[in-house]
Structures are given as C-alpha cells and as structure tokens.
Design a binder for these strands. Structure first.
Length: 511
RNA sequence: GACCCGGUAGCUCAGCUGGUAGAGCAACGGACUUUUAAUCCGUAGGUCGCGGGUUCGAGACCCGCCCGGGUCACCA
C-alpha cells in the first residue's frame, strides 16, 4: 500500500467521523482500570459462573460480530480476555456505536465477569470507552488452539517489516513483547548484582575527541560550535578507568558503543555494552565476578521465558515455540591457556614461527587476505579458527600474548603474556577482561606501538591518548576490568540467531 | 563483499513451458442475541519492487538497479 488512504483506512475514517458525530471523543486522555487482563481472568473462581465487575483496558485483537451480539478479545501487556457485547444489555444506541469499533482499537470496558457456555472467562460489557481509534489496520493473524497449542494463521511474517515497524510487531506478537521484557529483566539483574557489590553506575562520554579502548572503526561526526571532529565511542573503557584514578573504586556503565562496520546477524552498528572496573582486583577476581553475573543474568531470563515459570494467563497468549530453554551456567567454567591451547591445536610452537611460516599457516587454515594482516592479527585469526570457534560450553581463555592486548597488565612470571581472559560460548566471545595495565610508562610504549600499526594502515588500531596517560601518571590503582556485550549475551541465553531479534529498533536502510 | 532465495490486494500466499491477475483472511453491504481461525450470501480492492530490453503479447524471459532474508567471508 502506498501511504495515501486505501479503502480500509477510508472505512475507518468514516467510522471515526460517525463516532464523532455521535459525540464520542475518539482519542481519550486516560482510563482507570481495576484489573489487568490476567488479574481479571483470575478474579473469576474456577467453578464460578458469575464474578465481580472489572474495568480493563487494552487493544481489540479479535472481533466477532453476530448480529445483535459481538464477541471480541481485549489484550493488554499481561494477557487477554474475552468481551461480550449484547444489544439487550447495552441498549440500541450504545450498540450502534459498538458496531463502529474495529480490530486494533484501544478501548476500556467495564462489566461483570461470567463464564460462557464453552467455559471461557468473559467480561459482559456494561459500558465501553473508546480510548484510541485505530485508523491503520494492524497485521493481525488469526489464532486457534489445536490440542492446547496456539496456532497462527496468516499474520505478520515479513521480517523486514517486523524490524522496521517494531511497534506493529510488538502489538500483534505477545511473544516478542515477552522477549524484550526478558531483556530488560536481565539488565536489571546485572545492575542489581553489581550494585550489591557496591559498584556505582556512571555515565561517560559518547562523543569523544579521541576514541579508544577497543579495536574498531569509529563513526565520525562534527561539532559545529567547537568546529571540531568528534567520534562516537567504540568502548567505555578509558573513561571508566579514569574514574578509578579519581577514587571511584567500583564503577560500571551499561550503554551503547558504535562501530562503523558491516551489519549481519551478529553485528549492529550500535550495541549495548556492559563494562565494569574494580580497584584492588586482578583478573582472577574478575573471573569470579563474570561467573556470578552470568548466573544471575541467566536466572533472570529464565524467570521470564521458561515455560514452567509462566502463569496460565501468560501462557494463554504465547505460542508454544516461543518458550525458551535458557542454558544453565555452572561455575566454575573451565579455563584454557591461550598459547598452549593454540600450540596443541596447531601441533607446533606457533609463537616461535617466522613471519613467513605464520602466513603460510594462516593461508592453510583458510584465513582471508593474509597478506594484509600484521602479526597480532594473524595470531588472532589463527586462534579464532583453531580454538575459539570450537569452544561450545562456556570456557575462559586466559593469558593472551602481549601484542594482542595493549591495555592489559603483563602476566606475572611471563612478560610475553598478559593477564587477560575472554569467555567463549558456542564459539562466540561473551566477555573480555584483564588485570588492567596501570604502569604509565609501559602503557605509553604500547599505545605508541598501536599508533605505528595505525600509521601502517591498520584502521582498527588506536592512537596515543595523552589525557588517559596523564590520568595514569597520577597513579592508577591496580584493578580488574570486564566488558560484556549485552546483546550477544541475551542472544546466547535465548537462542536467538539474529541480533535484530534482540534489539528493539535495529539499524536499517531507510525505506 | 560473494553466493543463494525472495519482493504479486492491508496481511499470508498461488500464478504450469510467456496469452494481459487469483485464493484465504482483513474491509464494505446483508443474515445471525453464548461465539472464539464464528458461519452463510454478496461487493469492492492490484503502476505484479524500479528502469530498460526481447516479443504480436511479459507478473513470468534477458540486462541493470533498489530493498530484504539466508549462508559464507570480514568484524580481537
């Protein structure tokens, strides 16, 4: 449909005009429900035929006129309940207005509960209030119960339109609402875990004169008044660690990072990152934190999405295939060391290879564009193929080579390594953490090495952040730090295969 | 970025080797006072993603483009 009025929308505008002519205000200011639909369903005892009067509000999601009666279903966030409009109850004048209602209208009703002949709890509508007229048809499908399973017919299936018009996707798919409720609860659980440890939630700049803290291509923008370029942050890390210098000993931030890279089923240009930093802790402590945090996150998601946790009223509106088995995290997670695991998988001492042999190995493993990669990148690629991709159950990879980790402290007892770990599950990175480098002289040398890579054409290498070095020179407490991609964590917990399914408004090309 | 699949009514889809568009639902009109994918009768609704080409004739075939989905690659 083009955006001009098609015949369906014309019909709705005509009904709108008819309602207005009858003195009905089609867009209300509020309503005062006594129950949500789930509470209303519970208010009629199982064997009772008649129940109390309830006031409920929501969207009409089914509409079945039968001459002098109408059956409909009213849905709110909790569940849905059947409505019964009867001309003899409402009077001819009111019933004529009921006939001007449409699927998708938002209404409030009140009336006593009763049980229909087929046993369904229903509101015998005594009065109805139009709260918002729906002028554009929502893509409702039809639903039926087959052996207790909810089966959808037709409906709203085009994934593009579902992402673009998430409001419509949410309006017609209770299970999509449910998924985002679960995501929100997961973030609440993470906050509450960190808050319980005395962490302070903070906000650091999204617009940064110099980006850093990760290896990625940034978005570039411009500030008019200052007439200067600004980057959208690719990580929170360097600002959070500045705060620890300032004496805020436990800080975290949950916010969006922005990376100017491709879009696919695991990448959205903006995504939600959790980072937390804890003074006096090393990476061993942070492994404990990550384990406990993931258990809390998984429990919170399970509480919303596991079938045995849902009430009967909630189950009523959810198709069976929307129930999710949330994986159990069982700490402690196994640990594998970076260099030994790589050497074992490769059958040779990879770190000792000459550049030419290293390239050969990468070629043999199917790494692309080998010629353009520097040594750290080559190592990382080889590791990804041989080790990371094969880690299915949650596993910590520990002690990364120094050249891969410009912000991590050297490993005690082996200065070629760093005290860094990443957590992998189903072949995907779930967390990245280290004992944070707090030696400003070492840090300067590492950043200068990065700057040389950048000058040599590595678009993801970062430059020297003088202000960050200045902060560190004042004295930075030893600390552990962790970064966790919230979208990917939630994907893992819910079995989602596309990041767009866990982001309310994923980045799309304009229509 | 490569490859595969797709874009036809508001929604979900059909349309055989080319003969000028179809169903169900939604909508509109009618019947129906306990239905629940309500049912029954009738009506209306389409630049067949966009542009070019082949052809007497293109939704279908060819070329280009746009948009999307999937797979792979890239992305510490």
């Amino acid at each position: 449909m083009s955006d001009d009025l098609n015949f369906v929308m014309k019909a709705r505008r005509e009904k709108l005009a008819a309602l207005e002519a009858a003195g009905i205000a089609p867009f209300a200011y509020g309503f005062d429900p006594t129950h949500d639909t789930a509470a209303a369903l519970r208010a009629l005892p199982p064997e009772a035929e008649e129940g109390p009067v309830v006031r409920v509000a929501g969207r009409l999601v089914a509409w079945r006129p039968h001459g002098k009666t109408v059956f409909g279903h009213l849905a709110d966030q909790a569940s849905r309940i059947q409505l019964y409009f009867r001309r003899d109850d409402l009077g001819e004048d009111v019933f004529r207005l009921v006939e001007l209602l449409d699927l998708g209208d938002i209404i409030g009703v009140s009336g006593p509960l009763f049980r229909t002949r087929t046993g369904e709890t229903t509101v015998r509508v005594a009065s109805a209030t139009l709260l918002a007229k729906s002028l554009r048809p929502l893509p409702f499908g039809k639903e039926e119960r087959v052996d207790g399973r909810l089966v959808r017919h037709s409906g709203f299936a085009d994934p593009e339109q579902r992402y673009r018009q998430r409001y419509a996707d949410l309006a017609v798919h209770p299970e999509v609402r449910r998924r985002f409720v679960a995501r929100s609860r997961m973030i609440t659980a993470i906050r509450s875990y960190l808050d319980g440890l005395g962490y302070l939630e903070v906000e650091t700049p999204v617009l940064q004169p110099q980006y850093g803290g990760a290896a990625a291509r940034p978005f570039l923008t411009h500030h008019n008044a200052l007439d200067m370029p600004l980057y959208l942050r690719i990580a929170d890390e360097l600002y959070l660690k500045r705060l620890v210098v300032g004496g805020l000993e436990r800080v975290y931030e949950i916010g969006h990072d922005f990376r100017n890279e491709g879009i696919d089923r695991t990448h959205n240009p903006e995504f939600t990152m959790l980072e937390f930093y804890e003074a006096w802790a090393d990476y061993e402590v942070m492994m404990d934190r990550v384990e406990a945090l993931l258990v809390a996150a998984a429990d919170s998601v399970r509480a919303v999405l596991a079938p045995d946790r849902l009430s009967a009223e909630e189950r009523l509106v959810l198709p069976d295939d929307s129930f999710v088995h949330v994986p159990e995290f069982r700490p402690p997670f196994p640990r594998v060391e970076w260099v030994p695991s790589l050497n074992a998988a490769a059958g040779m001492d990879v770190m000792a290879l000459e550049p030419a042999s290293l390239r050969q190995l990468a070629e043999r493993l199917g790494v692309n564009a080998v010629a353009t990669l520097n040594r750290p990148k080559l190592l990382d690629e080889i590791f990804q193929v041989l080790v990371e991709g094969k880690l299915d159950t949650p596993t910590f990879v520990v002690d990364y080579p120094k050249e891969l980790s410009p912000l991590a402290k050297p490993r005690r007892g082996n200065a070629a390594l760093t005290e860094r770990f990443e957590l992998f599950a189903r072949g995907k990175e779930m967390a990245n953490a280290f004992s944070e480098l707090n030696d400003p002289i070492d840090q300067r040398a590492r950043l200068e090495a990065q700057a040389r890579l950048k000058a040599a054409g590595d678009e993801e290498a970062v430059g020297v952040d003088e202000d960050y070095l200045r902060a560190m020179e004042y004295g930075m407490p030893p600390m552990g730090g962790v970064g966790i991609g919230i979208d990917r964590l939630f994907m893992y917990l819910t079995g989602a295969s596309n990041i767009r399914d866990v982001i309310l408004f994923p980045t799309m090309r304009p229509e």
